[in-house]
Design a protein around this nucleic acid. Structure first.
Lengths: 243, 243
DNA sequence: CTTCTGCACTTCTATACAGAAGTAGTTGAC
DNA sequence: GTCAACTACTTCTGTATAGAAGTGCAGAAG
């Protein structure tokens, strides 16, 4: 689940970092799904033969990485990512209602494909699954996505029933493949769309679109997913917090 | 320097947080400018009558907030923001050279003005200074900026000699006004520019520009600056890290 | 049935201490 | 003069301990 090099590098890293890795691996393995508490500091300390302070440090590390969540008096819990709502903030319905509607997703196509060079370089392999997805708001197409996943990690996702997947992919990655998206990098630009995309979005051939290219990373820093999303430039809004 | 409510709320917050605030205030007051080390953990502990562990926690807090920087064996230092180079990554010269050229800045206009309602609401006051700035790369205008600052905090900036300011504003805010930009929020969209802006950028009247609206915040969370930047959409690249 | 109290748990704060690891300057040997 | 060793610092890691603060549940009191 975790990258092997991370687990084996028990060399001369400090104890609290090695413990962090071990716990992260057990989380990724699905040992404590859902809303049940992880073992307490004291239990961890006893089991691992470390002091409570060291355990605290490892746990704190995982909290700051966004994997865990601690509540005083209650315990330590998995943090259901709550991630994509944060990620999905472009094309925010600045229309009438400012409500937090998540757009409907429709899978257009899924297939095994050899990734183009630029994608293969990022993902570290050309043996990929490609997913084409269309997102709609009130039956209006607002985003056309092209998603590339390494087959080694996501094998079988191309045949999963569409209903099982739901509108958000990252929670699905976690539940089904034990893969946690720790962070991502976006790149926004502006272009004229290929004819096929323009058609899908219901735009004129000479219209303009905003382009978001994203690479998503796992906890160990390896690239998990590359995607390119396009949508009409006029209704585009991308929000981002820096620092 | 720090917001008063933060300093006065010495009520029943934990000691390490109160210490954090005191140190942040002293930093903001300019007590340890430049590349000289702050007092060591031991010195702080003695001076403040706290244990070293508590001091460490306060210092660590400030590191994670981006204010300080610690080097094992050497000491604790101010972190020259290094901020704007990170912020200035749109309109990245994807031209021939991928070098890290910082664009030239030219101040077009500065004046005291009443801020429009939306800006006044963000900044908490309509009594503002407005700066218009043009940024050029190889004599090509690539960005037209409109910057609003609350007069209470930045009084006099409208008459500072242009040469004194330099190409990056945030370091200047810190040196001259003791104001540290802790984080910012960007909002990116696309639009057709007003005639005046199009002229400044040397664009056709019906061209598309990318619009970046940014609100910058101080350590205490108060909004310090609002700006709107526009530049030709075609050469636009905005990078952002999430999570 | 509702409210309060107590208890066993959790994480959080704060202290103290020992030694590892890294840095920078000085001193001494060659 | 050059380079190595030493030294006096710094932050970092790890341990141990005490009590505060918050949670959730069970059982008593009303």
């Amino acid at each position: 689940m975790m990258s092997p090099d991370r687990l084996e590098q028990d060399n001369r890293l400090p104890a609290y970092l090695r413990l962090r890795d071990r716990i992260a691996a057990r989380v990724a393995a699905g040992e404590w799904t859902a809303e049940v508490a992880l073992p307490s500091e004291n239990v961890f300390a006893r089991e691992e033969g470390l002091s409570v302070g060291t355990v605290r440090k490892a746990l704190q590390q995982l909290v700051s990485e966004g994997l865990l969540e601690r509540r005083q008096g209650a315990g330590t819990f998995l943090r259901k990512p709550a991630f994509e709502p944060t990620l999905f903030r472009f094309f925010a319905l600045q229309d009438a209602d400012r409500a937090k509607t998540i757009p409907v997703s429709r899978l257009v196509a899924r297939s095994l494909q050899t990734a183009p060079a630029e994608v293969a370089e990022v993902l570290g392999t050309a043996d990929c699954i490609r997913i084409d997805r269309l997102r709609l708001l009130k039956d209006q197409p607002i985003l056309s996505e092209e998603i590339w996943l390494p087959r080694a990690r996501f094998d079988g996702i191309e045949t999963v029933a569409e209903g099982e997947i739901g509108p958000l992919l990252y929670p699905f990655y976690l539940e089904r493949f034990g893969t946690f998206v720790a962070h991502a990098e976006d790149e926004v630009s502006f272009a004229t769309p290929p004819a096929e995309i323009a058609r899908r979005l219901g735009l004129a051939a000479d219209a303009f679109v905003a382009v978001i290219e994203r690479t998503a990373f796992a906890l160990d820093g390896s690239a998990i997913e590359w995607r390119r999303a396009m949508g009409p430039a006029r209704s585009f809004r991308y929000r981002s917090r820096i620092g």
